[in-house]
């Protein structure tokens, strides 16, 4: 999008944070026997407020999981940590992005966590295909927006 600021390469923090994400996926599998896919968990949430075909029925832990996700940045700030974040400010662009992410993850039955982390860890063919496809689409999209259109939109 319009911002092209450099970000620091953080291999150790990223490896550590990534391990926590993996640990959470293992907890969900060991405790509830389910894939920790955030798009699926979000559909469980949608199923409680709107009729959503195929939404999972074990909603209790899914709603609690979402609350945990929301609590994480607050816990870090309460602990005295700071969170640096820059979210693209092009609001129509963000609406389009959100629609595409929602549509795509429901059609494709998963996102970065379900297909990415859990699917790759299960050595699932479908998930390998999905990850290769969404990564490629992401690389192409950023290339087009930043280097072909150069923020012209």
């Amino acid at each position: 999008m319009e911002m092209e600021l450099r970000t620091a390469f953080t291999p150790w923090a990223s490896l550590f944070g990534g391990s926590l994400i993996g640990l959470s996926a293992v907890m969900v599998m060991g405790l509830f026997g389910r894939i920790a896919g955030i798009s699926g968990i979000t559909q469980g949430f949608l199923g409680t407020v709107l009729p959503t075909p195929g939404a999972p029925r074990d909603r209790d832990w899914r709603l609690a999981f979402l609350l945990g996700l929301l609590a994480a940045p607050l816990a870090i700030m309460l602990g005295g940590g700071t969170i640096s974040q820059s979210v693209p400010a092009n609001l129509p662009g963000m609406v389009i992005a959100g629609l595409l992410v929602g549509l795509g993850t429901s059609l494709g039955s998963g996102c970065t966590s379900g297909h990415g982390v859990c699917g790759l860890a299960r050595l699932s063919r479908r998930s390998f295909a999905a990850v290769l496809t969404f990564m490629s689409a992401g690389f192409v999209t950023v290339f087009v927006l930043r280097h072909v259109l150069r923020g012209a939109w």
Partner: peptide, 23 residues
């Protein structure tokens, strides 16, 4: 699966968010 992943990857490349980080 493939069409969904293309749409998802495109939205991810526009906004930089996938579902977990957005929450």
């Amino acid at each position: 699966l493939i069409l969904g992943a293309v749409l998802f990857g495109t939205g991810w490349g526009i906004g930089g968010f996938c579902p977990g980080p957005a929450w």
